[in-house]
């Protein structure tokens, strides 16, 4: 009995071991999500390198065939043509995939318009995907000529999609920056250490913000330019000019906001 009482007095609850650094396995840091555009753009550059090699080979074989005109040189030229067409097709496909991925970066500023452009790019990706099986199946020179003619007619439409996507991407970037600037203006308004007199200066920046939006809209309007069949009317330089104007206005607005904070901020 006494033994039992003594036992109960001195016994301690058996606790589990505390987790120690040596005892528990080290938690691995989460794997950072890879930036997909980097991967796809590297793949595109690799394919582009292969295309350039195949193209040089095609040009050489074509010249040799033109010079000698033998059956062997004709066969070599035909093989080189098929290889160059395949390489070109893969290059285009990898570029379209990378470009579609790039559009994800600032999609939130114009989600509907961006998605529309991405769908258009996907359509051409699917087309180039089909051609990976069509091209090797071309049997003779007349098939190759027919296919090449069809591609030449389609290519201006592919170019239109590509340049529209590039314009949309940059427009999204400038729009995102404008949203950031508006957020800065709101932060200035809400900061108690910045004098209220700053508000009247901030309100004058609305004019420049409108100019930014106008330039962005103009750049996007150029992408709607009608295209003649078989010939691409390049709107990209005009769009880029408008986007650079928008960027210049953004830089001016940021400079003005900094001056406002410098003048009216008293910590």
């Amino acid at each position: 009995m006494w033994f039992l009482v003594l036992f109960l007095l001195f016994v301690h609850p058996v606790l589990a071991q505390d987790a120690t650094a040596s005892a528990s396995p080290t938690l691995a840091p989460p794997t950072p999500t890879p930036y997909l555009f980097t991967q796809y753009s590297q793949d595109y550059l690799y394919q582009y390198g292969l295309y350039q090699q195949a193209y040089l080979d095609y040009v050489n074989k074509k010249q040799v065939y033109t010079k000698y005109g033998t059956i062997t040189t004709q066969k070599d030229k035909y093989t080189a043509t098929i290889n160059a067409l395949s390489a070109r097709n893969l290059t285009l496909r990898s570029y379209l995939i990378a470009l579609r991925t790039l559009l994800n970066d600032y999609q939130s500023s114009n989600p509907t318009a961006t998605q529309k452009v991405q769908i258009d790019l996907s359509k051409w990706e699917s087309w180039t995907n089909e051609q990976t099986t069509v091209i090797p199946a071309l049997n003779n020179d007349s098939d190759v000529t027919r296919w090449a003619t069809d591609f030449k007619n389609q290519y201006p439409l592919i170019q239109k999609s590509i340049y529209s996507a590039l314009v949309q991407h940059e427009a999204n970037l400038r729009q995102t920056t404008l949203i950031q600037i508006q957020s800065i203006a709101d932060s200035i308004k809400n900061n108690s250490k910045i004098q209220p007199e700053s508000q009247q200066w901030i309100s004058t920046l609305a004019v420049k913000s409108d100019l930014v939006n106008t330039s962005i809209n103009n750049s996007l309007n150029y992408t709607q330019r009608s295209q003649n069949q078989g010939r691409f009317s390049n709107f990209y330089p005009d769009s880029r000019l408008e986007l650079s104007k928008a960027n210049n206005y953004l830089i001016e607005i940021i400079g003005d906001l900094k001056l406002i904070v410098t003048k009216f901020y008293h910590p």
Binding site: S41, Y44, Y48, Y51, Y55, Y58, T81, A84, L85, R88, T91, L92, Y95, A98, L99, L102, V144, T145, W147, A148, T149, F151, K152, Y155, Q159, I162, Y163, L166, H169, E170, L173, T176, T177, Q180, I181, S183, I184, S187, I188, N191, N247, L250, I251, I254, L257, K258, V261
Partner: peptide, 29 residues
């Protein structure tokens, strides 16, 4: 505010440099 300004400055310095490949669309013709 400093962080916001830095982020906005960084965006204004970004340029889109992803030109399409220069390809010959008359291969096979």
């Amino acid at each position: 505010l400093k962080d916001q300004f830095d982020a906005a400055d960084k965006n204004t310095q970004k340029q889109v440099n992803f030109d399409p490949p220069q390809i010959d669309n008359s291969i096979g013709l």
